[in-house]
Design a binder for these strands. Structure first.
Lengths: 195, 195
DNA sequence: ATCGAGCGAGAACGAGCGTTCTCACCTGAC
DNA sequence: GTCAGGTGAGAACGCTCGTTCTCGCTCGAT
C-alpha cells in the first residue's frame, strides 16, 4: 500500500504538515463543505489563529492539500512504475498501482474527481487544482504509452480507462474496475500498436 | 441536443415538475450544499410550504431529482441508439450521444459522479442514487456490447471508457474525450471479439 | 522580581443554512 | 354577506459555519 492514504500523526511534523495531513483525511473522507474548520483545528491540534496564519482561508487550505497530495500521488505511482523495465509492463503497472490504491481501506475514489464534483462549479481555484492533477496524469500516461510504441490514440484510450476505473471504483466501492481496465489496456497495446 | 440539460419553464407543469426542474438546474450547476432552499424556492416559483409538502427535506429532493434525471437520461440515450440497426454501430452510438451531451452549454460532467463526489461520503441516499444510475448504465452498455458479439471483458472496457470520457469532459471542459473513447471502443470491438 | 511580547484556547460575530410558523388574504358554500 | 378552510409570502427559529477577537498565560531578557 502506498503512503497516499495514511497521513499518520508524527510529533516531528511541522504545523503546516500537521494541518495539511488533518485536512487531507477529513476532506477526503467527507468532502469540503461537510467539514468545519473547527474539526480541522481539532484534528490538526493547531490553534485556529495559527491555521489562519498559514493559509488565508479554507479554500486556500484545500488547494494546498490537493497540490501536496498530487505531488505524493505522482511520486508513489512513478516509484511503482520504475520497478519495471519493459515499456509495456510499465504502462500496465499503472493499473496494478491503481488497484492497490483503490483497494485501500475507506477509499472513496479519486480526490480530485470528488473535489471537482463538489466545488468545480463554484471555485475556480479547486477546478484548477483538479485540472492540474489530471493534466499531469495524462502527460505521464502518454509518456509511458508512447515509450511502449503506442500511437496517440491508444495513449488517450489508456488514460480514459484509468479515469474510468477510478470513478467506477469510487462509486461502486470495489477496486475490480482496475483489473478490467488493465486487461483492456493490454489488449490495446497488443493490437493497436499500428493504429 | 437531448432534452437532458434544458428544463424549460412551462406553465403547464405541475408543482412537482417545476420544483424538480429548478432543483436540477441549480444543483447541477453549483452542487448541493452551495445552493440554498431559498434559491430553489425562487427558481421554482413555489412557496416553501409547498416544497416541504412535496418532499420531506433537501436530501429527498436531491434524490428524486437524480432519479428523475436518470430516467430521462436513459430514455434519451436509448432513443439515439435505436436509430441504428447494426449491433456494433449501436455500441458506438453511445459515444456519439455522449459527445453531444458533453458538448452542451454549461456542461459540468456527469451529475451522478459530481453528486457522489460531494455527498457520497456523508449521504447514503445520494450514494445509492449514483450507484443505481451507474448500475443501469453498465447493464445497458453490457447488453449492447454483448449483442455486438463482444465478450464480457470488452463490455467492461467500453463501460470504463464511457465513464472515463464523462469524468474527463467534466474536468477539462471539453467533449473531445468522447471521440477518443469512441475510437478505442471501435478498436476493441474489432480486435477483441474473440478475447 | 518585573516587564512585555507572543501564543494558545476558546468566545464572539455576522452571515447563512434548512426548516417551521404566522398571518393576511383568497375562495367557495350557504 | 359571512364564515371556514386553505394557501402564499415571508418572518422567525435554532443551528452551524468561516473568520476574527479577547484575554490570560508563558517565557526569556533585564
Amino acid at each position: 500500500m502506498s503512503s497516499i492514504d495514511d497521513a499518520t500523526a508524527d510529533s516531528s511534523l511541522t504545523g503546516r504538515e500537521l494541518l495539511l495531513d488533518a485536512a487531507e483525511s477529513l476532506f477526503y473522507e467527507r468532502g469540503y463543505q461537510s467539514v468545519g474548520m473547527d474539526e480541522v483545528r481539532a484534528a490538526s491540534g493547531l490553534p485556529l489563529k495559527r491555521i489562519y496564519a498559514l493559509f488565508p482561508g479554507k479554500e486556500a487550505l484545500a488547494v494546498a492539500m490537493l497540490d501536496g497530495r498530487d505531488r505524493r500521488w505522482h511520486v508513489s505511482l512513478a516509484e511503482h512504475v520504475d520497478h519495471y523495465r519493459s515499456p509495456s509492463q510499465r504502462v500496465l503497472a499503472i493499473f496494478d498501482w491503481l488497484s492497490d490504491w483503490l483497494a485501500g481501506p475507506g477509499h472513496r475514489g479519486c480526490a480530485w474527481i470528488n473535489a471537482h464534483g463538489e466545488l468545480g462549479g463554484t471555485s475556480e481555484a479547486i477546478r484548477g487544482a483538479a485540472q492540474r492533477h489530471k493534466d499531469r496524469f495524462r502527460a505521464y500516461v502518454t509518456e509511458l504509452a508512447t515509450e511502449a510504441g503506442a500511437p496517440r490514440s491508444i495513449a488517450d484510450a489508456i488514460f480514459l480507462l484509468a479515469e474510468g476505473c477510478m470513478v467506477t471504483a469510487g462509486i461502486s466501492g470495489s477496486p475490480e474496475a482496475a483489473g478490467q481496465a488493465r486487461r483492456a489496456a493490454q489488449l490495446l497495446l497488443q493490437h493497436g500498436a499500428t493504429g
